[in-house]
Design a binder for these strands. Structure first.
Length: 466
RNA sequence: GCCCCCAUCGUCUAGUGGACUAGGAUACUGGCCUCUCACGCCAGAGACACGGGUUCGAAUCCCGUUGGGGGCGCCA
C-alpha cells in the first residue's frame, strides 16, 4: 500500500463541535499512525449557509486541538471548473443527463410516493429525453436500474444496497455548482484520498458515491464509517449539550489534550487503558479497535479526564494554557517560579483551568477579601494571641513544609487550641477562604513577607470588630 | 412508509466459543488519610435487551422480536 491520505471536510455552516472534532481526530490519528497525509477541505458549495466566520472558527478550533493538516485548506467554491469538467465528461459519455423537471413538481411527486408507502425517488421523466444543458436544468447521474451496489466498509464488511433503492440523483445544480455527492467524489479522486473515515450517517450516501466512481471509471477509496456521537440523552447532538463549539471548551478551561483523550475514547478502546497522550494515541490507534455502536457524550467523564490531565501535566505546560485565564492580573509582577509553585498547590484541586485561576486568586492579589462566613467563624477574638505569636515565630522559621507542620502542631498542643481552628484562622487570613490548598504549602509559596503582612491585617481586622 | 446501521453496569468501554464468580474507567455510596477542600488508597452497589436455534459448551455464531440511531434534498 502506498501513502495513506485522509481528509477532514467540514462544511462551514456552523462551528466545529464534538462530533466533527472526533471525525477529524480519527482521520488525523489514522494518517499520523501510518505516517501519511491529512488534508483539510472546506465543503462550502452551499453558498447560502456557508460563512467566513465559521471557516475561521473551525480553523481556530483545529489549531487549538493540535490537529494540524498537511495540505489545504481547500475550498470547493474555488474548484468549480474542475467539477464542471468532470460533469461535462459524464454528460458526453451518456452517463449523466439534463433534467428540466421543476422543484415544485418533484416535491409533489415525492409526497405522493410517500403517501403510497413507497420510497420517494425521482421518476426518471427526463432520463431518455436527450436534453442538452439549459436554463434551470440540472444534471442527473444515470444510475443502474438493476443489480446491487455493495459498500465495502472497513469496520463492518459488505453492506448491500439494491439498485432499486437508489435513483438518478442530481450531481450539478441548475446554477452550475456541484452537489455534495458529486463534489466529494471529484475531490477525493483528485486529492488522492485513500481512506474515507466519516460518521455512519454517511453509510447511505456511499452507494450513491460509488455510482459516480463507477461512471468515472475511478477506483473508490476505502471507507470506514464510525459511529456517531449522541447527546447525553441519546438523541442527536444539539446546541444544549455537545454541539457546543469546541472553542467553548477552551473558554470553559479544558486542556486540548484532555478533550483529545476523551474524544478518542468515545468509540475507540485499547484494552483497559483510559488515559493516553497524543503520542500514545498516534502509536496505538487502529481502525480495528473502533466500536460500532453510537456513543453518548458524557460531560462528567470529560470533566474527569480534564482534571486528570491538569494534575498530570507539567506545571510549565499548565501555565501556558492558564495564562489565558489570568488576563485580569499583571503576571509580570511575579516570577515564573512563583507561579509554577502556586500551580503545584492547586493542580489536584482543579477540574478546569477556570477553577484553577479562581483558586489561585489569593496568590495574585495585593489584598485578600474575606469570605463573610469564614471570617465570622474563624477570625475570632480568642485566636488573636495565637496569630500574634505566629507573626513573631515565623520570622525565625525555615520555610519547609515539615518544619512548619511541626511548629503548628506544637503550638496547638502548647496552647490547647485545636490545630483545625488555628489552621482555619490562618487560612482565612491568607486566602480569604475556608477552602484552599494545604496551609503549609501556601505559606511556603507566599513567602514570609506576604504571610506576615496578611496575618497582621487579620489581627487588625479582628480587633476592629468590637 | 421504505432502506441502512447498531445493541455488555446510568455513561464510555474490555471481551473475538471454554481462562467470566463478566474486567477497567467515570458517576454514585461507605471507609481510610487529614489543617479545609481536593488528590490518593480500600470497599460496595451496578450490565451481557428479549425469544428461538447451532454447539458438549454462547456475552461471543445464526434467525426473529424489541429498542436506539441514521438516510430517503438543486443541505453537507
Amino acid at each position: 500500500m502506498g501513502e495513506i491520505i485522509t481528509r477532514f471536510p467540514p462544511s462551514p455552516t456552523g462551528h466545529l463541535h464534538l462530533g466533527g472534532a472526533r471525525t477529524a481526530l480519527f482521520n488525523w490519528l489514522f494518517a499520523k499512525h501510518h505516517k501519511g497525509k491529512f488534508i483539510l477541505r472546506f465543503e462550502d458549495t452551499d453558498r447560502e449557509r456557508s460563512k467566513q466566520e465559521y471557516v475561521d472558527s473551525i480553523l481556530e478550533a483545529l489549531k487549538w486541538l493540535g490537529l494540524n493538516w498537511d495540505e489545504g485548506p481547500y475550498f470547493q467554491t474555488q474548484r468549480l471548473d474542475l467539477y464542471k469538467k468532470f460533469a461535462q465528461r459524464l454528460y458526453e459519455e451518456g452517463k449523466a443527463y439534463y433534467c428540466e423537471c421543476s422543484k415544485e413538481l418533484l416535491e409533489e411527486k415525492k409526497k405522493e410516493m410517500l403517501k403510497m408507502g413507497l420510497k420517494p425517488k425521482y421518476d426518471k421523466t427526463c432520463r431518455d429525453k436527450n436534453l442538452g444543458p439549459g436554463e434551470g436544468r440540472v444534471l442527473r447521474i444515470k444510475a443502474p436500474e438493476t443489480g446491487e451496489i455493495v459498500v465495502e466498509d472497513l469496520l463492518r464488511g459488505k453492506i448491500v444496497f439494491p439498485a432499486e433503492e437508489l435513483d438518478d440523483f442530481i450531481i450539478m445544480r441548475s446554477d452550475g455548482t456541484p452537489t455534495y455527492q458529486f463534489a466529494v467524489v471529484i475531490d477525493d479522486i483528485t486529492m488522492g484520498i485513500t481512506h474515507v473515515i466519516r460518521g455512519d450517517d454517511h453509510i447511505s450516501n456511499t452507494p450513491k458515491q460509488l455510482i459516480i466512481y463507477q461512471a468515472l471509471g475511478a477506483k473508490p477509496p476505502k471507507f470506514a464509517h464510525i459511529p456517531m456521537v449522541l447527546g447525553p440523552d441519546g438523541a442527536r447532538l444539539s446546541k444544549r449539550h455537545g454541539a457546543k463549539s469546541i472553542l467553548e471548551y477552551r473558554e470553559a478551561g479544558y486542556l486540548p489534550k484532555a478533550l483529545i483523550n476523551y474524544l478518542a475514547r468515545l468509540g475507540w478502546g485499547y484494552g483497559n487503558q483510559e488515559y493516553f497522550t497524543v503520542e500514545e494515541l498516534i502509536e496505538k490507534f487502529t481502525l480495528e479497535n473502533i466500536n460500532l455502536s453510537a456513543a453518548r457524550f458524557d460531560p462528567d467523564k470529560l470533566l474527569a479526564f480534564n482534571a486528570y490531565w491538569i494534575r498530570n501535566t507539567d506545571n510549565k505546560e499548565v501555565l501556558e494554557h492558564l495564562k489565558y485565564f489570568l488576563k485580569a492580573y499583571d503576571l509580570s509582577k511575579f516570577s515564573e517560579d512563583y507561579l509554577l509553585s502556586a500551580i503545584e498547590t492547586v493542580k489536584t484541586r482543579s477540574k478546569t483551568l477556570v477553577e484553577m485561576a479562581e483558586m489561585m486568586q489569593f496568590y495574585l492579589v495585593e489584598e485578600v477579601i474575606y469570605e463573610e462566613k469564614g471570617a465570622k467563624k474563624f477570625l475570632v477574638f480568642d485566636i488573636v494571641p495565637i496569630l500574634e505569636r505566629v507573626v513573631e515565630d515565623l520570622k525565625e522559621l525555615p520555610l519547609e513544609e515539615k518544619k512548619l507542620e511541626e511548629y503548628f502542631r506544637n503550638l496547638s498542643e502548647e496552647t490547647g487550641i485545636k490545630l483545625k481552628n488555628i489552621a482555619q484562622a490562618i487560612r482565612v487570613a491568607l486566602t480569604g477562604k475556608t477552602v484552599s490548598p494545604g496551609l503549609f504549602e501556601i505559606i511556603k509559596v507566599l513567602g514570609k513577607e506576604r504571610v506576615i503582612e496578611r496575618i497582621k491585617k487579620a489581627i487588625k481586622y479582628i480587633k476592629n470588630l468590637k
